[in-house]
Simulated scan of single mutants.
Amino acid sequence: MKKILVLVFLITSMGYSQILAPVKWSTTVKKVSNIEYDLIINATIKPKYHLYSLKVPEGGPLPTVFIFEENENYELVGNMTEDKGHTTFDPVFELNVKYFETSAVFKQRIKLKTKKALKVIGEIEFMTCNDTSCVTGYDDFEIAIQ
């Protein structure tokens, strides 16, 4: 029964996702070598909201997901990494869940297959919650590599 209530809670709060924008995203690039770069995606989170981790337990909130558009000019190296964050018991989901407050930094290393300038294009799917509601969100990103 509790899982059904959580599902209803999430569905009804999704309608507010177009109005509320509890997370603002920005990007930077760090050159690691002649052919490798770290793509850095920063989340600025409004007070009282939590942004959830890349990995959450089954039955928990929706994780933060980064989807990179395929491009023959680069390849992803390893998996996306994230800040340490906080792990605590979430009474809504009745699970220990990792989340971020105020800000979060996600990094993805790429390896270039060309010397030409290119753009890394992708999207972010995420969920944020406060004490009264949850908001699912979606954002696009485009990162230029010179």
Rank of each mutant, 00 (worst) to 15 (best):
I40A: 07
L76Y: 01
Y37R: 15
V92L: 10
F141V: 06
K115I: 14
I35S: 15
K116E: 15
F141W: 11
L76A: 06
N96V: 00
P63R: 07
K84F: 05
A43M: 07
F9P: 01
T87P: 02
I35P: 06
K48S: 10
F93A: 03
G15E: 03
H50N: 07
T87Q: 08
K107I: 02
D139N: 13
G78N: 02
D140H: 14
S13H: 13
D131K: 08
E72A: 08
E58W: 12
H86F: 03
V105W: 05
P22V: 04
N96P: 03
P91V: 05
S13E: 02
T28Q: 14
L7T: 12
G59C: 09
E72G: 05
M14R: 02
K2W: 15
K55M: 07
T114E: 07
T128L: 04
E58S: 13
K55A: 08
V97L: 01
T64G: 06
K24S: 10
H50W: 05
A21P: 03
T87I: 08
I110D: 04
I19Y: 12
S26C: 07
M127E: 11
S133Y: 11
L20D: 07
E58V: 10
V56Y: 05
Q146G: 06
T114Q: 12
D140S: 12
V6K: 09
Q146T: 12
F9S: 03
L7P: 06
V120T: 11
F106Q: 01
D140W: 14
Y74V: 00
K31N: 10
G85W: 05
I143Y: 07
T102C: 00
W25M: 03
S13T: 13
L62Q: 13
D90V: 02
L7G: 05
F126E: 00
N73H: 11
N73T: 00
K107L: 00
L76I: 08
N42Y: 12
K113M: 14
I41A: 05
L95E: 04
E72L: 06
E82C: 00
Y52S: 01
K3V: 08
M14P: 00
G78H: 06
E75R: 09
K55N: 12
K111Q: 11
L39D: 09
N42L: 08
K55F: 11
Y16E: 04
D83Y: 03
L20T: 05
E36K: 15
E36W: 05
I19H: 06
L5H: 12
V6H: 08
E75W: 03
S17N: 06
Y52I: 05
Y49A: 03
T44R: 04
K3Q: 12
D139P: 08
E142C: 11
E70T: 10
T136M: 10
D140I: 04
H50Y: 04
V97Q: 00
V56D: 02
Y37I: 09
S53H: 07
I67M: 10
E70L: 06
S103D: 09
G78F: 09
Y16P: 00
F66I: 01
K55Q: 11
S33Q: 09
